[in-house]
Design a protein around this nucleic acid. Structure first.
Lengths: 158, 158
DNA sequence: TATTGTTATACTCTATAACTATA
DNA sequence: TATAGTTATAGAGTATAACAATA
């Protein structure tokens, strides 16, 4: 085993990811994965997944919206939203109400329990976020969000 | 249709996501989704997906590493890595070489073509990243990465 | 016994085509 | 004919259990 044939060694040296780490996308992904992992655990205590959580919050904030509007806002394909709405409805968190002026569409409304669960989720997620952003000042977070928004805009105009 | 029964209206007002938008996770996710979407398109031109791309780059940077080391580094379950390695190997981009000192394990090595494709991918991703970070200074990106790393550390210690 | 790679399997999320009922 | 919601289906990505070969 010479130093000229390192490929055949068992590679006790630590594995590096410097090539990937040079990229913004990789670094943002790593932070996002950590957040997502912790958030998934927090939401699990409320029997919510990321999709049911964000769907419920959007219905609470925009009562009466249609499924098509919601799938646009959440960037979920309409067929995939159906089963999420089904789940929230069967749990008594939201209602589907036929619209009078267009009987093809449903107005989505939160129930009292839906509103309560949404509030509990928001509280829990605030605590989760406070933990993950501990030691980071409001100014730094504002700067972070400013840059993230600019990246998002750069991507949107592509 | 009175203003006191907005739930029954067809809701021509724009849909808002202020509840979700108050959270760092949501804002990071939105930026990441934009990056991922653009990166997926860029890699598609090289017949790579995010998983085959990051796997190939790790093998090029760490020639000789084992599949178990790679799955640890990429945070992919070992069974799921197998099919990715299969694909890269069948395309002639990498080799599986039995290790002399531990004949259970494979050393993963890039081929010449694997090295070439990895270089092309790195070049393409650099261009993609330059587009998405246009107008953002090096100082701002350094600040961004500093904050992202702190969030990642906060999550890791949880 | 424990580990490496593998197979089988299941679950979630995503994406598209085609249907129904309404418009 | 077009749209809203639905059904069916297929593809990724992810997760766990169990196996053969080897340590």
């Amino acid at each position: 085993m010479t130093k000229f044939a390192p490929n055949l060694a068992s590679r006790p040296e630590p594995i590096t990811d410097n090539t990937l780490r040079q990229f913004q996308g990789y670094r943002i992904k790593r932070a996002f994965m950590v957040i997502q992992s912790d958030l998934t655990r927090v939401l699990n205590d409320l029997d919510l997944r990321m999709l049911t959580y964000s769907t419920l919050l959007m219905i609470v904030e925009n009562p009466g919206l249609r499924q098509s509007q919601l799938s646009d806002a959440l960037k979920i394909e309409r067929p995939n939203l159906v089963v999420i709405i089904d789940e929230l409805e069967s749990r008594g968190l939201i209602l589907r109400e036929r619209m009078e002026h267009d009987r093809r569409a449903y107005a989505l409304l939160p129930t009292l329990e839906g509103n309560r669960l949404a509030q509990k989720a928001v509280d829990a997620v605030r605590i989760h976020e406070a933990r993950l952003t501990a030691g980071i000042s409001d100014e730094e977070l504002a700067q972070l969000n400013n840059i993230l928004a600019r990246i998002e805009r750069n991507g949107a105009s592509a």
